[in-house]
């Protein structure tokens, strides 16, 4: 369980199962955090290592930027497709299902390569691989997010929609004012997890030459022939990012599960 930070305060407190909060403390996370700090310190002491780390660090900005933009786009695409998946309209349903199944059936890397080398040339945009990358991530993740939305919508009890309809609300009003606000609250944690997954998958954009974190590590590795340092640097930077984000998701999870709404 994610008992971050509270373990010092009530070490003697016991849960009903008799497990002390000391035991529930996220030791793996604390050990990992300390490990990361040590590794970083060791890296900084070595001048070459510090250089490599500094160079790879330059890719963090683009990785995060690409992920944020693609994720926002995926949130919108996913919402539209998710609404299609629960729609009574057969055209909307089958279009959305087709999209979701095709995207989920393709490896992310293939979607990325296809976007850059097939779709982008068709619209004359292959000069900017970052743009293709954002498009590919948004399209691929839109399908996963659509299923998250769908699950959230379907988890709302039928009686809620019946109560809304019995007041004279249309199907659209019921979705917008009653179902979606509740569903969104429930799917916040899984949505957050997909953000983390997308950050990791953004490393695949190195395959089309986007200068994000992984690509810089590759460049630095082939320049210095020291892949050990280059990829250690990349790995530690990814870990810092994903651990911070997963802590955020845990907080979100606790808030939505304990929240009254």
């Amino acid at each position: 369980m994610g008992e971050v930070g509270s373990s010092e305060i009530n070490q003697t407190a016991r849960s009903p199962l008799g497990r002390s909060s000391l035991r529930q403390a996220p030791w793996w996370l604390i050990i990992l955090g300390i490990g990361i700090v040590f590794v970083l310190l060791a890296m900084m002491r070595n001048e070459d290592y510090a250089k490599t780390l500094g160079y790879v660090l330059g890719g963090v900005g683009l990785s995060v930027f690409i992920t944020v933009v693609a994720y926002v786009a995926a949130l919108i695409i996913g919402l539209i497709a998710g609404l299609g998946r629960v729609s009574a309209n057969p055209i909307a349903y089958h279009t959305a299902t087709l999209y979701v199944e095709v995207m989920r059936g393709l490896p992310m890397l293939v979607i990325i390569l296809y976007t850059q080398f097939v779709i982008a040339p068709m619209i004359g945009a292959q000069r900017n691989p970052a743009l293709s990358g954002i498009l590919a991530l948004a399209l691929g993740y839109g399908a996963y997010l659509a299923e998250v939305y769908r699950a959230g919508i379907e988890s709302i009890e039928r009686g809620q929609a019946e109560a809304a309809r019995s007041l004279g609300m249309s199907a659209g009003q019921t979705m917008r004012h009653i179902i979606l606000p509740q569903a969104l609250r429930r799917v916040l944690p899984p949505l957050g997890n997909d953000f983390i997954a997308m950050l990791k998958d953004s490393s695949l954009l190195s395959a089309i030459g986007v200068n994000e974190l992984t690509q810089l590590a590759r460049i630095e590795g082939s320049r210095t022939f020291d892949y050990f340092r280059a990829f250690n640097s990349a790995a530690i930077l990814y870990l810092i990012l994903t651990l911070l984000l997963s802590l955020g998701v845990r907080l979100l999870e606790r808030r939505t599960s304990s929240g009254r709404r």
Binding site: E162, A163, P181, R260, R261
Partner: peptide
């Protein structure tokens, strides 16, 4: 029977 107030 189950009231079905809107919890949000």
């Amino acid at each position: 029977q189950r009231f079905e107030l809107f919890p949000h």
